[in-house]
Computed example of a mutant assay.
Amino acid sequence: MVAAAVVVASLSTSAPAVAGGTGHGGWVPAPQEGFEQPAGARCDFAVRVQPVVDEVRKLVLAEYPDGSPRRELYTGKLIDEVTNLDSGAVTRVDASGTSLVEYAPDGSMTWYVTGPVLLGFRENAGSLPRGIWIVDGVYVVEFDPTYVHKTITMVHGSTHDVCTDVD
């Protein structure tokens, strides 16, 4: 989910924030940042996603020789509030999944996830249509090096477009 990054970073176009040089010093907080998307980017309307409960933490499991992360584990409670900025409609979603995140040398990353995470998809940029999706179950999410294109391989689970909840 990124967990940390898992949940919210996947909605944005930037990569998850990574604390360089943390080594294997134990679990550290991995706070999620809220963000807004204009109408048409994820939903037909402008939308804001804001964490209201954020207990996400990460553990660095392996690093590359330069100290950048190679493998991290993310877990913790994350409840996001999704707001339609045009109508004011609001819903809360549980994005408290657990993810093992592997970072490849080419800049791509793969999440091995159990539980719910919130993922944003642009038009024609992945295995789900444009939207803000709660993906729940056991699955793998592969991100290209730009983090724009995402492919989900479900082992078992479900998907739900949160845009429909606040439309």
Rank of each mutant, 00 (worst) to 15 (best):
T13H: 05
T13D: 04
S14R: 08
P16C: 14
V18Q: 15
V18P: 02
A19T: 14
G21R: 07
T22F: 10
G23F: 07
G23A: 13
H24G: 15
W27I: 10
V28M: 15
P29D: 14
P31K: 15
A39H: 01
A39C: 09
G40E: 10
C43Q: 02
C43W: 01
C43F: 02
F45C: 02
V47L: 04
R48I: 05
R48F: 04
P51W: 07
V52A: 13
V56D: 07
K58L: 08
V60N: 10
A62L: 11
P65C: 11
P65S: 15
G67I: 14
G67M: 14
S68R: 15
E72T: 11
T75K: 11
G76E: 07
K77G: 11
L78A: 14
V82N: 03
N84W: 03
L85C: 00
D86Q: 12
D86E: 15
T91Y: 03
A95L: 03
S96L: 07
G97E: 04
Y103S: 01
Y103W: 11
A104I: 09
P105M: 06
D106T: 12
M109Y: 10
V113W: 01
G115D: 05
P116V: 11
F121R: 03
F121V: 06
R122Q: 13
E123K: 15
E123C: 09
A125N: 09
L128F: 09
L128A: 02
V138R: 03
